[in-house]
């Protein structure tokens, strides 16, 4: 089975956001594999172990992404591909999809997995956008995946409710929390990962026309939410506090 994972390198979830010169500063920031993409990588490895084949993890970014790709290889993926877009100034979800679509153009794939959303820009666009460009079906926010022959049966999370969905391969799916428990790379895994192939492709080596992949959207401003004033912690007898709270909610906050 030809299994592909599309992965993004993102800020560690715990990172504080600092804005410098109108942009989000990456100084001193810890990076990780986007947590939802980790589910996708784990599922891909399990699929390969059950059905045979190969797992290739593909990411877009600068050379720094090699670190997260090595982590994916250490988890158990077979190959990694970095599409280097360092020299591309203007990029959004449309651009990213165009690059991925160009990469997949001459590949044979049974399934492509990704996270349902990233923890930075949180658009969740890439999976469905890519499937549309490749002309394949997609199922988002899956929490269970079984493949029998060319039939995939999935459970998907729909705002807390659960849907059982069936589709034929080739297919693109996006992972939701609950799909699996991603493994930590083992020490032998980390050693082996060093020798696994990590291919780097420059974005302009792909069959794309620079004018045609130009971003469709533009960020005008980035800002931090207004600092919240310290809240009021009430004091006194519990009964009095409750009485005061209800009064505050009705008269000061006016939400009830």
């Amino acid at each position: 089975m030809n299994i592909y994972v599309i992965m993004k390198r993102t800020f560690d979830t715990e990172e504080k956001i600092v804005i410098e010169n109108g942009k989000i500063s990456e100084e001193g920031v810890e990076f990780i594999i986007n947590p939802y993409d980790e589910y996708a990588i784990e599922e891909a490895i399990q699929l390969r172990d059950d059905h045979g084949g190969e797992v290739t993890v593909v990411s877009i970014g600068d050379e720094e992404v090699e670190k997260e790709l090595r982590t994916a290889l250490a988890m158990g993926a077979d190959k990694a591909v970095l599409i280097n877009n360092e020299d591309l100034d203007d990029s959004d979800q449309y651009t990213t999809t165009a690059l991925l679509a160009a990469y997949f153009e001459d590949k044979e794939y049974d399934i492509i997995l990704g996270g349902n959303v990233s923890n930075d820009n949180s658009t969740g666009q890439i999976g469905p956008r890519l499937a549309e460009k490749l002309g394949i079906a997609y199922v988002t926010t899956i929490t269970k995946l079984d493949i029998d022959g060319t039939t995939a049966t999935m459970e998907r999370d729909v705002e807390g409710d659960m849907e059982v969905v069936e589709a034929q391969l080739p297919l693109l799916v996006t992972a939701q929390q609950g799909l699996n428990e991603p493994r930590y790379p083992s020490l032998p895994g980390i050693m082996k990962a060093k020798k696994k192939p990590l291919e780097e492709i420059d974005y302009d080596d792909l069959d794309v026309d620079e004018d045609e992949i130009e971003a469709k959207t533009e960020t005008v401003e980035v800002y931090l939410p207004p600092k919240k004033e310290a809240g009021k912690v009430l004091e006194g007898e519990i009964g009095d506090q409750v009485e005061e709270l209800v009064k505050l909610l009705r008269q000061e906050a006016k939400v009830i």
Binding site: T13, I17, E218, V220, E221, P225
Partner: peptide, 12 residues
């Protein structure tokens, strides 16, 4: 963006 830790203004 970043789980509500920041906001952006964006246009097409």
């Amino acid at each position: 963006i970043y789980s509500g830790k920041a906001f952006e203004k964006k246009k097409v």
